[in-house]
C-alpha cells in the first residue's frame, strides 16, 4: 500500500491531544494520531514509553486525563457500559499475554463472543470456529486447553478470538514478544494476511524492529509519552531524528540514556 493513497481513506481511529496522568506522573503528553481504513499502523517505542497505555485508551479500557478518542467515527472518550460495549463488538484485541480463558478449550475461547453476543445456532458457530482457526493455522486444536499449547499457538488462538466477530479494527499488543524468530515471522505474516485479505485495519504496538519495518504501512515512534515521528517504513528508516535512529539500530549510544551519572553512584556509595 503506497503512502499517497492512504491519505484519501476514511479515518477509522483517531486520538486528539491525549494526555494521561498516573498519580502525578505524565505517561502520555498530548498524543495526536490518525489511523486510516485498511492500513497497518505500528506504534513503536521502548519499554515504558506508554505505548500499551495508549493502546488501552484507544479501545476505551482507560480514560484520558484530557483529549479525545474516536473509534469508527464515534467519540468514545466518555462512553461507559452498554455504549462502550457496542463499539467493542466491532473491534478485536490481541493481548501481549494472549489472555486466553484457561478454564475453556481453544474452541470455546474463539466461540465465546459469538455465543455471548449473537443468536447464531451452535452448529453455525462451530463452523465459524473451524474457519477462524484455519485462518490462523490451528484447525484441529479445538479441544485442547490453553495450558496444552505453546506460546506462539496461544497468540494465534488469541488472534482467532479477536477476529471471531469480524471486527473492522484489530489491535495487537506486542504480538511477537517472547516468541522465537520463526514464530514471530509467522505472526507478522498472519497480521498482514488478515489485513490484506479481510481488509481489517490493524493497529500494532511493538518494540520488535523486524516486525515494525516488515508490516507497518505507517509507523509512529513514541518516546517518553510523545509521538516523535510518523511516517512510512522508508521515511522512518531515513529519519533525521537521532532518537528514532538509535531505536531502529538498537544502538547503545544516543539520546536515550539508560544510566545515571557516575558521580551520583560514587556519592551514594560513600554516603
Amino acid at each position: 500500500m503506497a503512502g499517497a493513497d492512504i491519505e484519501d481513506r476514511k479515518v477509522v481511529a483517531e486520538v486528539k491531544g491525549l494526555v494521561k496522568d498516573f498519580g502525578g506522573r505524565t505517561v502520555l503528553s498530548g498524543i495526536d494520531l490518525k489511523v486510516r481504513e485498511g492500513e497497518t499502523f505500528v506504534i513503536m517505542g521502548g519499554s515504558g514509553c506508554g505505548k500499551s497505555t495508549l493502546l488501552r485508551h484507544m479501545i476505551g479500557n482507560l480514560k484520558p486525563s484530557s483529549g479525545r478518542v474516536y473509534l469508527l467515527g464515534t467519540d468514545i472518550t466518555d462512553f461507559e457500559g452498554a455504549e462502550l460495549d457496542d463499539v467493542r463488538k466491532k473491534i478485536g484485541m490481541s493481548f501481549q499475554s494472549s489472555a486466553l480463558f484457561d478454564s475453556m478449550t481453544v474452541g470455546e475461547n474463539v466461540s465465546l463472543p459469538l455465543r455471548e453476543h449473537t443468536k447464531l445456532e451452535k452448529s453455525v458457530i462451530n463452523i465459524m470456529v473451524t474457519m477462524k482457526l484455519e485462518l490462523v493455522g490451528l484447525r484441529g486444536f479445538e479441544d485442547l486447553m490453553p495450558s496444552e499449547i505453546s506460546g506462539g499457538m496461544k497468540k494465534r488462538v488469541g488472534i482467532a478470538r479477536a477476529i471471531a466477530m469480524d471486527p473492522k479494527i484489530v489491535f495487537y499488543d506486542e504480538p511477537t514478544a517472547g516468541l522465537d524468530p520463526i514464530m514471530a515471522a509467522v505472526i507478522d505474516k498472519l497480521i498482514l494476511d488478515l489485513s490484506r485479505k479481510l481488509s481489517i485495519t490493524s493497529i500494532v504496538v511493538t518494540h520488535d524492529m523486524k516486525s515494525v519495518l516488515g508490516i507497518g504501512d505507517r509507523i509512529a515512534m513514541l518516546y517518553e509519552g510523545s509521538v516523535l515521528e510518523v511516517g512510512t517504513a522508508e521515511e522512518i528508516k531515513n529519519s533525521q531524528n537521532a532518537t528514532v535512529q538509535q531505536f531502529i539500530n538498537g544502538s547503545f549510544d544516543g539520546p536515550i540514556s539508560f544510566f545515571q551519572s557516575k558521580a551520583d553512584y560514587l556519592e551514594q556509595l560513600t554516603k
Partner: peptide
C-alpha cells in the same frame, strides 16, 4: 457476506 454468513451457507 461475513463469516457467520459463510458458515450458514456451509451448514
Amino acid at each position: 457476506v461475513d463469516s457467520s454468513g459463510l458458515a450458514t451457507f456451509v451448514e
